[in-house]
Write a protein that binds this DNA or RNA. Sequence first.
DNA 1: TAGATTGTTAATCGATTAACAATC
DNA 2: TAGATTGTTAATCGATTAACAATC
Lengths: 209, 209
Amino acid sequence: MIMQAIGKQTVKRLPVYLEYVKALPDQKTSISAAAIARALGLNEVVVRKDLACVSANGKPKIGYDRAELTKALEHLLGYNDLSHAVIVGAGRLGHALLEYQGFDRFGLDIIAAFDNDDALTDKKPGSKPIFPVSRLQELCQRLGVKVGIITVPATQAQSVCDQLVAAGILGIWNFAPVHLKVPETVIVQDENLAVSFAVLQSRLKQRLL
Amino acid sequence: MIMQAIGKQTVKRLPVYLEYVKALPDQKTSISAAAIARALGLNEVVVRKDLACVSANGKPKIGYDRAELTKALEHLLGYNDLSHAVIVGAGRLGHALLEYQGFDRFGLDIIAAFDNDDALTDKKPGSKPIFPVSRLQELCQRLGVKVGIITVPATQAQSVCDQLVAAGILGIWNFAPVHLKVPETVIVQDENLAVSFAVLQSRLKQRLL
DNA sequence: TAGATTGTTAATCGATTAACAATC
DNA sequence: TAGATTGTTAATCGATTAACAATC
């Protein structure tokens, strides 16, 4: 079997499958594509094709082995080897992400934040450290951090982005509503709440006619 | 011209265009599709086709009138008539969304939050009110709220969803990583951080081979 | 007129769905 | 064997890209 690049739409569904399979009642040791499709409101064939990419081998009449499927999904999504990341911008959103407990569930370990507001940079016991932005480059390089999360206002996002790139970051998760210019070697994943809300609005509007 | 339903991918790009056009330097009174495409890293034809949907009429050799384009985008995205919304779950994420100042920029007005944690439900001066979940139905109905935002843990999301539906909510913006079951009349828009991060990871991995 | 730009039609690509053979 | 389920091949749909005519 040739290692195919997995389609983007498939990648988006894999974490959803994993979440669902993990939440299954304990006694279930196997699960069928049809059951997953029903539970998640998807087409059966989509699920089977997606799971085929994961190379989880299903047994006719039984389905997929739960433990095996979980493992295969976690492996493919890279949930085993933790990605160390830093957040730039420790305002409300940045802080919420910094202290969110659920990220280790999907292989993301946010080790620190950076902010220029001195009021934020004192270390509180039990919480993760917040450093001044001036130390970003030094610390990222020293710790070998490869993922940066941007939660600063739009006006500062490009400058922060440039600093992250200079610090050797390879992937940027961008919550600021601007298009970031980066070298070809760096990947930007935009998370734009306005976009997401616009999709909801548009579907609501369409429904109302 | 027949009123076509706008494609989903187009809807996702419209807020990005709007954001970009708004941020243009003051002296610019017109903008070409080519310039937008270059700035946002998109194909020119995509931009022209998208803008055609918005029915902004561009002039050859000049481009689109900035003011007209802004207005048309805002109108189509429904940024003029505010959507009143409530948040259920006033933890870190819910609270960050509740107090986020940028939502009115895209027609979303979060008027209150609900949470069962009594420690959160005291009104602080200058901040938006947080009520106990028991009052959700009463208040939503009285205020005619049509959009609900779910930021509770996964285990409680379906129950909260059911209460929102019972209160007459038509659209749900769901930040909990579960598939919600709703009647056909209700629209759910999922915002799943695990999904977004998985896409980043997968693109990073691909890059590294 | 020449050149830049829009808007549209046709071709390509990727993702979804339908049909069906293979297997336990 | 019969039935349920997987996995794959072909058909359809939607979105992107390429080519080009229309217009100021």
